[in-house]
Write a protein that binds this DNA or RNA. Sequence first.
DNA 1: GTAAATTTATTAACAGTGTTAAGTTTGCTT
DNA 2: AAGCAAACTTAACACTGTTAATAAATTTAC
Lengths: 206, 206
Amino acid sequence: MSIIERKKRHKESLRQEILDAAREILLAEGYACLSMRRIAERIEYSPTTIYHYFNNKDDILYHLCVETLERQYEALSTAGADLPSPYLRLRAALRAYVDFGFSEPDRYKITFMADLSRYVSTASILEQGGVADRLITVMYQRVHEALVAAECNRDVKSVFQALWAHCHGLVSLLLGHPDFPWTERENLIETGLDLSLAGLFVKETE
Amino acid sequence: MSIIERKKRHKESLRQEILDAAREILLAEGYACLSMRRIAERIEYSPTTIYHYFNNKDDILYHLCVETLERQYEALSTAGADLPSPYLRLRAALRAYVDFGFSEPDRYKITFMADLSRYVSTASILEQGGVADRLITVMYQRVHEALVAAECNRDVKSVFQALWAHCHGLVSLLLGHPDFPWTERENLIETGLDLSLAGLFVKETE
DNA sequence: GTAAATTTATTAACAGTGTTAAGTTTGCTT
DNA sequence: AAGCAAACTTAACACTGTTAATAAATTTAC
C-alpha cells in the first residue's frame, strides 16, 4: 500500500505548505494581509482547496498559535535558568515573555490579541501535555519557587495569572498603540517588572 | 440666516443619530456586528449617506472612543476621591479602570483593543485639553501623590504607564479569553493590584 | 412663478472578505 | 475499459468598507 502512503504524504506536504504559506504571509505582511485567497495564491491552488485540509481560517490560525506557543515555551523555559536566585529566574522568564512579544509581534497578536474564540476552543489549546500546559507548568514552577524564597503565602495560580496579565498589558498596549508617547521602552518594561515583582516581598499591603 | 441654521441643526441631528445608532449597535450586539450597512439600516438611510457626515467607519469609532474616554474620566476621577491616603486613592482609580473595562466591555474593546491606527491618529485623541489629556493628568496626580507619600523616587510617567499596562493586561486578557480557567475574578484583580502597587513601597529591588 | 444652483440622498458598482454547493478532472483499482 | 474515489476548480452567496455617478429635493436668483 505504498501508493496510498505516497498520496497521504503528498496530502501531508500540501497541508504543511498551507501552514508555511500562512506563516510566511503573517510574518512578511502582517495579520491584516493574511487571507484565504492570499494563501491560495501563494501555494498556487484555488482557495477552496484549502478547505480540504483545514476546516476554516481559524483552524489554520490555531496551528500558527500552537507553533507560536512552542517558540514561546522555548524562550521562556530556557531564559535565565542558570541565574542564582528564584526571584531572578522568575524575572528572567517574565522578561523573556515581554521580549518574545516584541520580537514576534504578529505571532503575538494572533495568539494573544486576536479574537479566535468562535472556532478555536480554549480547551483544545489547554489540553494536558500540550504546549500551553507545559508553558503554564514551567511558569507555575518559577512562581512557586519565588514565592517560597520570598516567604510569600499567596496563591501560585493567582500570582501567575496576575503577572501574566501585567506582562501582556505591557506588550499588547505598546504593540496596539505604537504612536502613543511611551517612555523609553526598556525603562518602561523594567519599571513594570519592578512594580509587579516587588509585591512578592511585601507581606501585607495596608 | 435662521434657515441655514435650521439646516445645520438638522445636519447635526442626523450626525448625532448616526452616532447614537452606532453606539446602540455596539452596546446591544457587540463590536463584530457594528457595520456601516447596519448603521444605515437603523437610521433608515442608505449606507452612502453616512459618508456625508463622517469620513469613514473609523471616524465614527473615533467619536465613540472619545465618548468612552469621557465616561472613563468620570469614573476614574471621582473614584475614591474621599479616601484618606494617597495610596488608597491611586488604588481606587486603578480599580475603577478595571471595573470600567468589565462593565463596558465593547466600549473598552474599541478604544483600547481594536486596531484603529490607520485612520484615527493618536495625536488627535491626545490633543491638549481633550479627554485623554485630562484623564492622564488626573492619573499623573494620583500617581505623584502616592509616590511622594511612599517616598519613592521613581518617574511619574513610567510608573503611570506601567500601572496602566498592568490594568489593561488584566482587563484585555480576561475580556479576550473568557474561556480560560481564570481564578475567581475579584481575587485575581486584587492580587494584580496588590502586586503592582507594592512596588511603590520597596526602595530597591535586588 | 419659473429657472438655475446647491444640497442631500440614492443606486450601482468595485474590490475585498470567509465560505460552500456543485461540477470537473485526475489517477488508481478492479 | 469501467467504475470509483479523491483532489481540485468554478461559480456563487452573503457579507465587508468605500466611491463615482445620478437622481431628488430644496433653496436661491431672476
